[in-house]
Structure formats: structure tokens, C-alpha cells
């Protein structure tokens, strides 16, 4: 019961983020949405640890968090240099 409610809420959040990811008028919108989406995914992986009662999923969530942070920084650098002159 509690699983259904929480997974439903988190899934709806991901759905809205994906809608913005597809619609987003500029590249910056898409990158920002990807950042939000990554944090929601960290929460989802932690919820899997809760559901399967297996703490290894928390390690997976931590590694995913580190990779998502690096991904955000790299996309930020890409976006900065995209307009060339600076």
C-alpha cells in the first residue's frame, strides 16, 4: 500500500520532468530538467532498497549521485562554451 502510493508520486514527478525534457524550448531547459530528473532517480533507487530490503541499492544510489553530479558539471561546461566567443 505505502509502496504503491510513494512509487506513484515519484513516478508522476518523473513523468512531468520527462514532458519538460521533451518540450523544452532551449538546450538549457533540457539540461536543467535532466538535473532534476537525476535527483528523482536517486530517490527512486533508494526506494528500491526500501522495497527489497537490501542495502546494496543504497550503494548504487550513492554511485549514481556522484555520476549525476559529474554529468551536471560537464553539461554546464558544454553549455557555457557553446556560443563560442567566451
Amino acid at each position: 500500500m505505502i509502496n504503491a502510493i510513494v512509487f506513484g508520486l515519484v513516478g508522476l514527478g518523473m513523468l512531468f520532468a520527462i514532458i519538460r525534457l521533451i518540450k523544452g524550448p532551449t538546450v538549457a531547459d533540457r539540461v536543467v530538467t535532466l538535473d532534476t530528473f537525476n535527483v528523482i532517480t536517486i530517490g527512486l533507487i533508494s526506494l528500491l532498497a526500501f522495497k527489497f530490503e537490501n542495502s546494496l541499492f543504497l550503494d548504487v544510489a550513492l554511485v549514481y549521485a556522484i555520476l549525476a553530479f559529474m554529468e551536471t558539471i560537464v553539461f554546464g561546461r558544454y553549455l557555457e562554451g557553446k556560443h563560442g566567443d567566451r
Binding site: V6, G8, G13, M14, F16, A17, R20, T26, V32, V39
Partner: peptide
């Protein structure tokens, strides 16, 4: 857990409905 789910929902909704990049 339910509060966390609600705020994730709010995050997705905020990204969808805010008007410009900085507000998102």
C-alpha cells in the same frame, strides 16, 4: 516517505510549469 514523494512530485511539476530557466 509520502512527504518525500510529494516533494518529488512538486519538483517535477515546478520544472514543467515555471515560466523561464532560472525559475525552473
Amino acid at each position: 516517505l509520502v512527504i518525500g514523494g510529494l516533494f518529488f512530485l512538486l519538483g517535477g511539476l515546478g520544472v514543467l510549469r515555471m515560466p523561464d530557466v532560472f525559475n525552473r
